[in-house]
Amino acid sequence: MLNSPDASSTRPYLLRAMHEWCTDSGFTPYAAIFVDETVQVPMEYVKNNEIVLNLGYDATAGLTLGNEFIEFKARFGGVPREIIIPINRVMAIYAKENGQGMSFPMGTSSEAMTAPKKMPPVRPALSAVETLHTKDGPEADPPTPTTPSGRPALKRVK
């Protein structure tokens, strides 16, 4: 759809590239998602309007990394769920094993609904990740802005 607000966004292409790199390198792709009314995820796993999801093929069924949405089915606590995430709600994608990945700028809730007039630069290579694993699926504390510029910074917790 060429006339959609996100038609010129590079985010879906970068997400697919990072997902492919993780998979080809034997890493597990994780995505940090900003959750609002447009995101369909199990709300009981959401903390501070954020959730981290395993996007690996072993954890998902029917994964589609489209230009407007990420869609798949996954089990949470043994219960199958359908997950639908608008592309503009993805804050970061990274390899669980080494934290390398890419983060994306997030505006306010209303700003995130539309594409920005000028695409801000993407900051590559996340250095670390804070995750907590549950028996039936990953759950993580979301990245929090800790840098002077207000950009998200991830911290590894062992």
Rank of each mutant, 00 (worst) to 15 (best):
L2E: 08
P5H: 13
S8W: 05
S8L: 12
S9F: 11
R11T: 08
Y13K: 12
L15N: 02
L15Q: 03
R16W: 01
R16N: 05
M18I: 09
M18T: 11
M18K: 08
C22D: 04
G26V: 01
G26Q: 01
Y30I: 14
Y30A: 05
A31E: 06
F34D: 01
D36Q: 06
E37D: 14
T38S: 14
Q40M: 12
P42V: 06
M43Y: 05
Y45W: 11
V46S: 09
E50A: 11
L53F: 02
L53T: 04
L53W: 03
N54E: 10
N54F: 04
G56D: 13
Y57A: 15
G62V: 04
L63H: 08
L65E: 03
G66Y: 07
G66E: 09
I70Q: 01
E71S: 15
E71I: 13
E71C: 12
E71T: 15
K73S: 15
A74F: 02
A74E: 04
F76A: 09
V79T: 15
P80S: 13
R81Q: 15
E82T: 15
I85S: 05
P86T: 08
P86N: 10
P86L: 07
M91P: 00
G99D: 03
Q100H: 10
M102C: 10
M102N: 03
F104M: 09
P105D: 12
T108L: 11
S109R: 12
A115F: 09
P120M: 10
P121Q: 12
R123C: 01
A125F: 12
A125D: 11
L126P: 00
L126H: 02
L126D: 01
L126T: 15
S127M: 08
A128V: 01
T131A: 05
T134K: 14
D136I: 00
D136K: 07
P138H: 06
A140D: 05
A140H: 07
D141P: 00
P142F: 06
P143C: 00
T144A: 13
T144H: 11
T144F: 09
P145M: 00
T146D: 07
T146G: 13
T146N: 10
S149R: 02
G150A: 11
R151Q: 14
P152K: 05
P152I: 09
L154N: 09
K155Y: 08
V157Q: 12
